[in-house]
Structures are given as structure tokens and as C-alpha cells.
Design a protein around this nucleic acid. Sequence first.
DNA 1: CTACAGCTTAAACACTCGTTCAAACTCGTG
DNA 2: CACGAGTTTGAACGAGTGTTTAAGCTGTAG
Lengths: 215, 215
Amino acid sequence: MEPKRTRARRKSPVRGSAAGNRRIAILKSAASAFRRRGYHGASVDEIASALAMTKGSLYYYFRNKEDILYACHEYSLDFLLHLMREVRDEPIPADQKLRKLILAFVHLILDELQATALTLDPEALSSPLLEKAIAKRDEFDRGMRAIIQEGMDADIFAPGDPKMIEFAIMGAVNLISKWFDPAGPMTSQQIGDAFANYLVGQLAARPGVAAAMRR
Amino acid sequence: MEPKRTRARRKSPVRGSAAGNRRIAILKSAASAFRRRGYHGASVDEIASALAMTKGSLYYYFRNKEDILYACHEYSLDFLLHLMREVRDEPIPADQKLRKLILAFVHLILDELQATALTLDPEALSSPLLEKAIAKRDEFDRGMRAIIQEGMDADIFAPGDPKMIEFAIMGAVNLISKWFDPAGPMTSQQIGDAFANYLVGQLAARPGVAAAMRR
DNA sequence: CTACAGCTTAAACACTCGTTCAAACTCGTG
DNA sequence: CACGAGTTTGAACGAGTGTTTAAGCTGTAG
């Protein structure tokens, strides 16, 4: 009795792009709610209502609330990792690599999923998912530090502790989502530029190098 | 009947320093829990248990959970505002003012209350308290921007948007609490120095000024 | 039209957690 | 010792919310 649990439990409905879009729409609504109220503060009902659905429907697309949170992280981390792998080996100086990554990060936060690896309470994830998310974030962290180190070795960045500098950059960018107001005077492009200018442009404090010829 | 509600509802027990300490101890425990799990994710029971109390006791010191959160914000914001007022008019160059404030901020986050204005979900506060917290944070923000502007006017900082730079600095420092590990290799002092060096030292990008003669 | 897969719904359940409160405890003072 | 203010407790409650489920809807293929 009982027909063997339908084998694969029902594959997540990513078949037609329609269903995929629905999943993405849920992710965006969830990310927005998580950002505003925090993971525990945002209710599943809230996420669904913003899409004119009932909360029950969400369970057709995701196993549970935690699964939604993980999907948010995976979405943005995969985006960043993809870019990181691309940029890392390009034949351009380290400051330009850093700049590209920061711009993309700001864009991701403001225009795409309003999600970040740090802001969206990853600590709410439990064991198997948490490790996966941390592993991805670690890979990104390592890439960032390698680029910073590369810039220091090439003498286009002032010496310092790459780990601390990376934390500072990630912190600055991650928290943009906390104060950004889409109705405000600045576009995401302008914010990205301003942050990149400050965070990497000024890293080149060595006299006569790079910093001068921007824009 | 009913004796007029004891006049002032029972003043918060700050009388003896013992009671005051208890309040502070609760704040520290709460700040730690809020930082780890978020405001909604941390339970009142959790905050009490860390102090070997029962959750009922907390209601002798605070009206409710939100009141505890507000006290956390007030504590750290008052600390920062006090320092800001002191530093603002000192006869030292802007970069040293900025440096002082950043160092104190890092110290506050790592050694004192593990609380910050941005990280500890201020949005969980409701109307009357939220406005008070925002007003204090705004005053601090304005002070920071004034100092940055001052440095630009004096030509010891490269030109830029003070608002964006201030957001970047606050974001970088605020998020320290998310990754800091007391058992890690760096002391809070070293972290503060590294952040100050990067965040303000690098602001001075004009050739031949300031940047050279640090340390 | 009929059948059926895909999708949505409403209601119900189980559980956690913030808050209240009357009773109990502690300890310095008279 | 007895009193009482200050402090703590444990139990109880009620509201909110994540999750399940069986039934219902919709549109497309036969």
C-alpha cells in the first residue's frame, strides 16, 4: 500500500518558464520582506499577500520558509560567484577587478534580489543548508581577498590586511539595502559609482598610480 | 478606589547601582541575542536564561521586549552622541576626528554593548520609540557628514559625496559585529586600527598631503 | 464534453513566545 | 524575631504563525 512516495517527491516546478518566474517572484517578495523585517519578523503570509496569493500556495513551490531563505542566498551567491570566476582571471589591473565586483554587487542588491549574504540572517538556516551557503560565501571572500592581495603585490594598493579591508568593503555594500530608498534622489548606478570610487579608488594611495586617471 | 496608579507607575529601578547593573546586564545579554538571532528571532526566555533568570523577571526591569530593544539603541546612541559632541569642536584636523570616532565606534560594538544603530533591527521599534531612535541617529549622521565635509573643504580629503562616504563607513563598521569572533586572532584594538586606517587614511588621496605621515 | 495535471485555496492543527499575576522569597532594618 | 520593600518565580493565557491537507479551480489535450 501507499505507492512508494512518488519517487522524487515532485520535482520543483521549474519546467515552463512561467513556473520559474513564479518562483523568482516569490524570492523577490521574500527577500524584500526579510530585508525589512528580518527572517523571523517576516511572516509567510506577508510574503504571499504581496503577490496576491495565499500562504498555502507557497508550499507548492518551496518546502518551507527556511527553503525560501536559502533560495534567496543561493540566488545572489551564485550570481556573485559566477561573476567572480569571470573577473578573477581577466587581464586587467586589480583595482579595475575590484571596481567591477563592487558595481555588480550594488546592482544585485538594489535592482535584482534585494538580498545579500550577510544582511539576510543566514544564521537562521540550519545545518545542511547553512554549510552550503557559508561555503559559497567563503569562496567569494577568498576571491575578493586574492584580488586585494594582488593589488598590494603590484603596488597599486597601499599595504594593509586584505581580510580587514574585504570585511570593510562587504560591510559597506551589504548595508546599502538598509537605507536605500528607491524614491530617493540617487540611482543605483550613482550609488555604485560613489561606493566604488571611495572603496577602491582611494585604496590606491601610492603616489602617481592609477587613482588619477579615473573617469 | 484604586490608589491613583502609584503616581509614576514605579520608576525604573536605577536607584542603587546594583539595580542599574542588573539593567545593564540584561541589555548586554539582549544585545548579544539580538545580534545573533535578530530581534524577532531572539526569545525573551533566551535573554533571561543567559543570566540565570526566568523571563518573568525581565518584566520587573522593562515594560516589554520592545522596551529592551529601545534601551539598547539608546545606550549606544547616547554613547556615540556624547563622543560626537566632544570631538566635533576639538581643534584637530578632520581626519583625526574621523579616526577617533571610528575607533570609539568599533570599541563600542566589540567591547561594550554589542549593539549598533543599524544592525539591531531598529525597524522593530514602533512609532514613539522609533522616532526617538531615528532622531538620535540622524544627529550622529549629520555630525559625521559635517566632519567629512570639513575635511574636503580643508583639502585633506579628496572630493566626493559626504553622504555616500558616511553610509559606507557606517555600514563597514556596523557589520563588524556579524563576523567578529572574540576567540579569533585579532583584538578589538587591532580591528579598530585596521578599519580606521583603511576608511579614513585612504580618504586623503590628494598628492602630498596628510596620507603620508600617518603612524 | 471529459479527464486530468497543474495550481490555488480555506480551514484546521500544533506550537512557540510575549505578557500577566498572585504568591513566594530575600534580606536589611527596627 | 517580625516586618516589608524589593525582587524573583512558575504557571497560565492568548495571540500569532509555520505547516498540512483535502477539496476546488482552471485550462488544455484527447
